[in-house]
Amino acid sequence: MKKCRARIVSKKELCEGIFDIRLRTEIAKDAKAGQFVLVFPNDPSRLLGRPLCICEADGDELRIVFRISGLGTKEISGISEDEEIMIEGPLGNGWNIKAAAGKEVLLLCGGIGAPALLQLAKKLGSQKGKEGGPKNVKAVLGYRNAPMNTFLAGDFENAGAEVVIASDDGSVGIKGNVIEAAGEKDIDCDVIFACGPMPMLKAVKSFADRKGIPAYISLEERMACGVGACLGCVVKTAAKDAHSHVNNARICTEGPVFEASEVIL
């Protein structure tokens, strides 16, 4: 865990408002699938780092794919190749990869939730069929509509996942949300990993509950410190949290990945 400069290797706009930035940083080598970094705007009046999930980490290269959701991410999206930016990380717990051992794995990716699952897909893809690895990996990627360009779908395919596309308006892939699309394709699974908007995560939680299978979900919340000090980013928990001793867990530290049954959404 450290804060340091990172150089922009490349930047692309994948579709309107969604950016793909590759950074050269020593943080990359310690990064695990499902962790995140704080990315600090260069504008000195914006002091807090933006929590952005790690999309890929390879050698000393870190890939982040994010949507502009405010002035900070807008500024970060405007950075040019060869410029530098401050980042802090890797932060958070990451995905529970062991839970995929010997299992039919389903990755549910809602919109800008997809980047949080790509490194996991790659990891699981490389372990598929091996001892301790998953039996099979399927991914349903949900988009709002066709202009979203089915961003990252090709990356999930390259990672070895069987990919199903869904869209809210039916303009690309199956019409419906990721759970409806999984149902229509008769996808059987015994563990779910999911990231996406809150209504989707709520649906994933109750779907997994009905099926009686574990679901791991990655949450987001407004953060300040990112290291568990300020207690800004908590989620309600079903049982008393071991650290806080109240029914709240820190998303930045105990999360961002939680077993869905542990949290109250």
Partner: peptide, 9 residues
């Protein structure tokens, strides 16, 4: 403590 969001820039 309070409900979230708890922080804002």
């Amino acid at each position: 403590g309070n409900p979230t969001p708890r922080v804002a820039e």
